[in-house]
Amino acid sequence: MSSIARLACIALALLLAAAPVECRTIVDMDGRSVTLPDKISRIVTIGPVPVLNGFLFAFGRQQSIVNGLPRELARNRQFVFAPELASRPVVQSSASGLAVEDIVALRPDLVLTMDRAATDKLAGLGLPVVMLKWREPHDIETLMALLGDVLEERQVAADYARYFEAVLTRIETTLGAVDETKRPRVLYVNYRRLTQPHRIAEWWIARAGGRSVTDDGREQESVTFSLEQLIAWNPEVIIVADRGEVEMAMAEPRLRGVAAVRDKRVHVAPAGAHLWANRTIEQPLTILWAASTLHPEKFSRGQLESEMRSFYERFFHMSLVREQLDEILAGSSGR
């Protein structure tokens, strides 16, 4: 054999040895190119873990998540949807940050994050990090389409997008022309801190036929205000994310004159895979719940429950029993 032929053989052998896994490249929501293995079976979620896990639940990927829930979120209802999460190692906490070595030891095929610091840190170690963003309400559709590409489940992403639009349209049609004066003034609030914590609430309140009192076109995610400001807004409906806060607000003597307190319209938002009032895969249900809370004459509780059943069946592949529905609707407690 000539030396050239021998060299060619060696080069070919090296090439074959060096490429045991097929790879592909995708572009994430931060515009970064990420090389991913063809088959993704081990996923780590970093940052807002319940939010990210919720996306994966919709792809039926509960089994692929290899990290647990941070301790501060351990009471989360995610265990209903993914009981296996309870035994997974926890690799992050709000106090101590990321346990980088533990994350590497999990050998993830994919790391999902929503913040740049974590992305830079973990991508710097050679991990395949895909950064997701959900700032504007409809980013969820782009986000799901990207995850559809990443997990090669494009039909799920397309199905979710169809569902999302269909629910929005249905609510809009049923609400019909509610004239401006019939739209109740609504405040979504973390009552302990007197903070409206998420901009997305401005969107779902409006879509559900309410007028959010904090909706002044602000850019920042959260806004903190005084008790007097709350009284001045005089909201007709107050929505909180924790059951204890309903009692706190109802018991506050200074709120006695506020319409929502007077009319006992202080509600706790449901909590499923995540708090419905915040960003969550369950957002279509958030709007339907809010619409049924603000306009009970147009949306019955029965309608809401059957929509919940079909949502969790269609996307999480779980049929929920009555108690589970009640538990989700009862919201979170003890935060």
Binding site: P70, R71, E72, S94, F225, L227
Partner: peptide, 19 residues
């Protein structure tokens, strides 16, 4: 305990005249 105590401490230390 990050579930309850941590939030209480952080909130307390911040202090506020809002309420």
């Amino acid at each position: 305990d990050p579930v309850d105590t941590l939030a209480t401490i952080t909130f307390w230390l911040m202090g506020s005249l809002a309420k």
